[in-house]
């Protein structure tokens, strides 16, 4: 079992294309958050092109899996993945953050098919994912809910309210994915308000924890997602170790690129690297 070598190659190529979309759309918009989109690219790519039961031709498919992007500022990675999946034309990506576009600065579930939840005010998506997982259980659907949160976002109290709810209800149809890129707007997470020991926290909230996963190894990401989806009796938290700005040398690990778009020369350089 597991993922084939060919599939890994295919996903790696897909992730490369998606990273190009991300820097291009943010560069063109001259606005947006490249760092946290690039750190999450391999995770979100694996979800949509390997793991989740979805049908881009039927966005409302009754028993589909759902993805909630709680760290809504990583909207570009979601938009790029949705476009590459076929929810809307890739050419539409260039309208990011433009007036009249459905590609809002942060995801708006009413604006486009495929966006499962509106997000952008940090900490809220996980509670919503808990509600979706509870609904699946009530309706006896075996669909999963995947929720991506940030490490800076983990400073929000509501994340832990939701974690307590998921653990209490033993929501094994819920998978929390932490994009542990260790940076937030004002600096290093551990300098601003440390969240360590993060694995222990999730364990304490009654989660099955899969930690130390290389969030940029497609093989490891997919293996962790498989393990998480198969786990029974508890929700799973996967701690993905990632690099902010991954894939663009001058953005990697640079705090400034949390919410700053690349300049024209920077965009050219980034696209050369990708």
């Amino acid at each position: 079992m597991g993922i084939s070598r060919e599939k890994i190659k295919e996903l790696e190529e897909k992730a490369r294309v998606i990273r190009r979309h991300i820097v291009e759309m943010i560069g063109r918009a001259d606005s947006g958050h490249p760092g946290g989109s690039l750190s999450a690219t391999d995770i979100v790519t694996s979800l949509y092109f390997y793991k989740m039961k979805i049908d881009p031709k039927k966005p409302e498919l009754e028993d589909r899996d759902k993805f909630v992007l709680s760290k809504g500022h990583a909207a570009p990675v979601l938009y790029a993945v949705l476009a590459e999946s076929g929810y809307f034309p890739v050419a539409y990506l260039k309208t990011l953050r433009q007036i009249g576009s459905s590609l809002q600065g942060h995801p708006d579930m009413l604006s486009l098919p495929g966006i499962e939840m509106t997000s952008g005010s940090l900490g809220q998506g996980l509670s919503v994912a808990v509600g979706m997982a509870l609904a699946n259980r009530m309706d006896k659907k075996d669909s999963k809910v995947y929720c991506l949160i940030g490490d800076g976002e983990s400073q929000e109290g509501q994340i832990w309210e939701a974690a307590m709810a998921a653990g209490h209800h033993k929501l094994d149809n819920l998978i929390v994915m932490l994009d542990h890129n260790k940076l937030q707007i004002d600096g290093k997470v551990e300098d601003i308000k440390g969240i360590e020991p993060i694995s222990d926290k999730w364990k304490a909230f009654r989660f099955n924890v899969i930690d130390n996963v290389d969030g940029h190894s497609i093989k490891d990401v997919c293996a962790a997602l498989d393990k998480a989806a198969a786990h029974k009796g508890k929700p799973t938290a996967i701690i993905f170790e990632t690099t902010k700005g991954k894939g663009v040398s001058f953005m990697e690990g640079v705090v400034g690129f949390h919410g700053r778009p690349p300049t024209k020369p920077e965009l050219e350089k980034a696209l050369q690297e990708l």
């Binding site: 579930m109 996980l126 509670s127 009530m138 309210e161 939701a162």
Partner: peptide, 24 residues
Amino acid sequence: RFINCGVAEQDMIGVAAGLAASGK
């Protein structure tokens, strides 16, 4: 069909949103 969210009003509203997004 009843969920007591405990003393966590913000979570309750989020859970409500997730349930509503699922047709409830």
